[in-house]
């Protein structure tokens, strides 16, 4: 038997504690989710049994699933580009010679450190019909009141706005970090060339920020899947599922309707989405590592 190299032994020993934790709480539940999705919901009389793809057929036939999938897609489309654009704008402003810059930066960043639940409490009051702040302002401007969270056509929009508010300042930080690495000589050179600020931004700054934009984009996509805390306060997915997102539906299915196998089936959809995202990101990372 070949002698075990000490670096192999130490490497494995050092990784082992984290490895056990990851196996227990990340790898096993991931595999178990797929496995569970092939079983029926057990009842007291009839225990859970293997049913193949029946849960998936049920999901495809479930109108709520399609509604939720559509909502999640709109949620992603509504939150990701807007919060990234606002974040970039914030970073450019905070990075320029702005009066009261520290204060402005603080204002932009503060939502990041607030719990979503607490933020939702405050926003709930903004959105409330009649007594809410939005309606009060609307009335002052001569507009009628509106039940923002109770109207299926605006509920998801209200959720999206709260999310953008919560996220933009967080993404700003990454842009700020990237902007500070742009050498000032570049700006001087552009000024000598007579480039306008517009040209400077689109031809120099924006391309240089591309890796950051990709990084932020992936983060924003992951967040659009997992950031659902405010639903619990603002709409609970209603009215009539109009603002229900996929992960919230998973929660509801598992812990309100106690249908674990169907919740697992829905989770598979999330896992596959995130898995594809991981593949895209790892490819992107590979490219970045090469020129480091």
């Amino acid at each position: 038997m070949p002698r075990l190299k000490s670096s192999t032994l130490y490497g494995w020993l050092l990784f082992a504690p984290a490895g056990v934790m990851l196996t227990l709480f990340a790898f096993t539940p991931t595999v178990a989710t797929f496995w569970q999705s092939f079983f029926s919901r057990g009842t007291a009389r009839r225990p859970s049994r293997f049913i193949g793809f029946d849960n998936y057929e049920g999901m495809i036939a479930d109108p709520v699933f399609w509604q939720v999938a559509k909502n999640s897609l709109w949620y992603a489309l509504g939150t990701i580009p807007t919060s990234i654009a606002i974040a970039l704008l914030m970073a450019l402003w905070v990075n320029s010679k702005l009066p009261a810059r520290t204060l402005v930066r603080m204002a932009y960043f503060t939502p990041t450190i607030l719990p979503m639940i607490a933020a939702a409490n405050i926003w709930l009051f903004f959105y409330s019909p009649d007594i809410g702040l939005l309606d009060q302002i609307g009335r002052a401007l001569g507009l009628g009141g509106h039940n923002w969270l109770g109207d299926p056509s605006t509920a998801l929009l209200a959720i999206i706005i709260t999310t953008i508010w919560k996220e933009a300042g967080f993404f700003m930080i990454f842009y700020l970090a990237a902007l500070q690495t742009i050498p000032p000589e570049l700006k001087d050179a552009a000024t000598i060339e007579g480039a306008s600020r517009w040209t400077w931004f689109w031809r120099v700054v924006f391309p240089l920020l591309m890796p950051t934009t990709l990084f932020v984009l992936v983060n924003a996509m992951i967040n659009s899947v997992k950031l659902i805390d405010h639903l619990f306060i603002l709409t609970k997915g209603g009215p009539n599922n109009a603002s229900k997102l996929l992960l919230y539906y998973v929660y509801e299915t598992a812990f309100s309707y106690f249908d674990q196998p169907y919740a697992a089936t829905l989770t598979v959809v999330i896992l596959v989405t995130l898995g594809l995202l991981a593949i895209v990101q790892v490819r992107g990372l590979d490219k970045r590592i090469h020129y480091r």
């Binding site: 709480f25 989710t33 899947v225 992960l247 598992a254 812990f255 896992l271 995202l277």
Partner: peptide
């Protein structure tokens, strides 16, 4: 990518 939030059902 596969955060604990996503695995609530099986982690429970």
């Amino acid at each position: 990518f596969i955060l604990p939030e996503v695995l609530i059902v099986e982690n429970y």
